[in-house]
Amino acid sequence: MKQEIIIAGFGGQGVLSMGKILAYSGLMEGKEVSWMPSYGPEQRGGTANVTVILSDDRISSPVLNSFDIAVVLNQPSMDKFESKVKPGGILIFDGYGIHKVPTRTDIHVYRIDAMDIAAGMADAKAFNMIILGGLLKISPMVKLENVLLGLKKSLPERHHKLIPMNEQAILKGMESVVKL
C-alpha cells in the first residue's frame, strides 16, 4: 500500500508542519515515509507545498508529478494541482479562498471549511489539524493514536500541552469534511 500526497497552500498556513505530522504518524505506524518540501523564498507568504509519501515498501522518488491525494488550501495551488490528481484520486480543499471550485469528474472531491471552524476555536493555529482530520476521515491511512504519537515526536516538548487541543481540531475536522 502506498499513498502519494501533495499538501499545498500559502506559506504560514501550516502546510509543511501538517506534512511533517503526517510523516511522523506514518513513522509511528511502521511505514516508510518521505517528506519533500518546496523550500526557499516562497515559504514567506507565497505558495508552499510538501509531498508526503507513506508506503509499506521502499520509496523510490520523493519528487512526483501525479498524486493519489491533493490537499489544496488556496487558489494558486488549486490551479496547479487539480490536474495532477490521478484518475480515481482524492482532492480535498478548504472553501475559504477558493473561488473556482474543481471541475474534474473523474476524481473524488471533498470540501472542508477549516478556516471558518478554526476562527471559532480557541486557537486559530489549529487550522492545519482540522484539515488533517478531514484527510484522515476520507483516507484513514494512519490510526489516530499514531497521529497523537506523531504530534508528540514532531512538536518540541514545551508545546506538548497543546496536543489535546490539536486532537480536538483533528476530531472536529473529521466530522466537518463533506463530499461534493
Binding site: 511533517k20 513513522l27 515515509v33 518521505s34 517528506w35 519533500m36 523550500y39 520509496i59 520523493p62 519528487v63
Partner: peptide
C-alpha cells in the same frame, strides 16, 4: 543536492 538536503526520511 537540494532534494536530498531538504527532504525528510527515516
Amino acid at each position: 543536492d537540494g532534494v536530498i538536503g531538504q527532504m525528510m526520511e527515516k
